[in-house]
Nucleic acid binder design. Structure first.
Length: 168
DNA sequence: GCGTCGATGGCA
DNA sequence: GCCATCGACGCG
């Protein structure tokens, strides 16, 4: 599952000649149109279009009138799956990335990055760590109590050793 | 330390 | 009307 593999992966953000690095420590999987917590369960719309595109691209949406959220499209093209990046540890700089809203704000990620291919080097991309296996804990997703039985699914992945989680 | 609530705008 | 959030506030 991509959401699990992304724990420990580095996110690279380049703005001008500046580069900021962050280690992903918390993710959530939204597994397709049948998942009532997933935006793709509302069908294919202008907003969710990139969710149905190829994996590895950014799906960035705006919510609560003030926050952008970074997701990474997952699964086969057309499957409508995505992974929400909920928290990360800044590497080589100081910031609080312990929540999806804060993470996007601090990394200057907005809908301007929607659809970006994150698998190739550019203004925003992923860098897979060379090695290392870490313990990963599964738990319930946050903020989706409306999603009927899907709210119980253990689709949140965390590195329990991190101090940058949005919640334990 | 907790729970509650307002901000703020795009979306269906 | 609701929302994959955050931060401020009141409590005692």
């Amino acid at each position: 599952m991509l959401a699990e593999r992304l724990i420990g992966t580095f996110l690279v953000r380049r703005i001008g000649d500046r580069q900021r690095l962050a280690r992903i420590v918390e993710t959530e999987a939204y597994v397709g149109p049948e998942d009532l917590a997933s935006h793709s369960s509302r069908g294919r719309t202008k907003r969710t279009e990139v969710m149905f595109g190829p994996a590895g691209h950014a799906y960035v949406y705006f919510i609560y009138g003030m926050y952008d959220m970074l997701n990474i499209v997952a699964g086969k093209t057309g499957s409508g799956q995505a992974v929400l990046i909920r928290a990360a540890e800044p590497i080589g700089w100081e910031a609080d990335l312990s929540g999806p809203g804060k993470l996007a704000r601090e990394l200057r990620i907005t809908r301007a990055q929607n659809g970006l291919d994150l698998t190739t080097s550019g203004e925003l991309f992923l860098r897979v760590p060379s090695a290392g296996t870490i313990k990963i804990v599964r738990s319930k997703r946050i903020g989706i109590d409306y999603a009927e039985h899907w709210k119980h699914a253990l689709l949140r992945f965390t590195d329990p050793a991190s101090k940058a989680l949005s919640r334990p």
